[in-house]
């Protein structure tokens, strides 16, 4: 039995390292390469604000390399860590190894977070450089349930209530100031308020990308709303499972659960984004100078 736990622990860690630092980064890199090669700044200048003149195409083509190199470095570091863990005869005993898994996962997703930040900066530049006098809008109203099925949303809501009930139950309904239950519930509420604000801002707020075609904008909204709702479901399941493991003194399985949780989050987030928005179907003509 202990050997099985060890095999599961290392198997899940190897899966985490490859999935978050190799498989998805490689897919994203291929996507970026495709965009920079198929839609270069010389023909699609609106896509690359601040990048113009001779050599702009080459600069754009080289940009995705940094993302690839950082991920490769994290992959090598992960494999090195794993190798050292195996060599030292490390065995998960439920004494906080999940923190190690969590911290390493944070390092793994750091390039993704930086990429998102860069994307927002690029959209800001796009809005600044946008001198187009014509503005286009869709005459179709948008509602939250255009982007997610009410059934899936209800499931997320029910699970959220179940998590609150579960937390209260295992903490003997102690909601005094500073209690574990109160902190957990407030944290979960905070995360969901953040999700709600993000969705409201995206669906009902101003256009982040001033050139995006309405069809692509709707697809993007659908993807983000789905990711948020599925993440909420995943989070609820994770919290309940994690607390059950603690209740039954199976803490040694927590690093395994933490790793699986992160991998599922990445599959939900990045996987859904890559699957739902195939680059070939996007309208890039809006980034041409003449449009």
């Amino acid at each position: 039995m202990p050997d099985l736990i060890l095999i599961i622990f290392y198997g899940v860690l190897i899966s985490q390292i490859f999935l978050i630092s190799y498989y998805y980064p490689n897919k994203i890199y291929q996507r970026m390469r495709y965009v920079t090669e198929t839609y270069p700044p010389s023909i699609y200048p609106k896509l690359y604000p601040g990048l113009s003149g001779a050599g702009a195409d080459d600069v754009a083509r080289k940009k995705p390399n940094a993302y690839r190199y950082v991920n490769m470095a994290i992959l090598i570091a992960g494999l090195f860590l794993l190798f050292n863990l195996m060599r030292s005869g490390f065995y998960p005993s439920g004494e906080g190894e999940e923190t190690f898994v969590f911290l390493f996962a944070l390092v793994q997703v750091a390039p993704l977070i930086y990429m998102e930040y860069s994307e927002f900066k690029q959209f800001k530049l796009m809005r600044k450089a946008n001198l187009e006098s014509k503005r286009v809008a869709d005459l179709q109203p948008r509602h939250f349930f255009d982007f997610i099925s009410p059934r899936v949303f209800s499931m997320a809501a029910v699970l959220l209530v179940a998590v609150f009930a579960f937390i209260l139950h295992i903490n003997d309904y102690d909601l005094t100031w500073g209690s574990d239950a109160l902190i957990s519930i407030m944290t979960i509420i905070g995360v969901h308020i953040y999700f709600a604000i993000l969705v409201m801002w995206l669906v009902f707020g101003k256009k982040i990308n001033p050139h995006i075609a309405n069809k692509d904008r709707r697809i993007h909204m659908t993807v983000v709303v789905k990711i948020m709702v599925y993440t909420s479901i995943g989070m609820s399941i994770f919290i309940i499972t994690n607390d059950v493991l603690q209740q039954y003194n199976m803490d040694y399985l927590q690093p395994f659960l933490m790793s699986i949780y992160f991998q599922i989050l990445i599959i939900i987030g990045i996987g859904t984004m890559l699957r739902s928005t195939p680059i070939e179907n996007m309208d890039f003509d809006v980034y041409k100078e003449s449009v």
Binding site: R135, V136, A137, D138, L139, Q140, P141, R142, F204, G205, K206, K207
Partner: peptide, 11 residues
């Protein structure tokens, strides 16, 4: 669309 949606979309 609502007034706010149209106003936001058209800036």
């Amino acid at each position: 669309p609502s007034i706010r949606q149209l106003a936001n979309d058209l800036d």
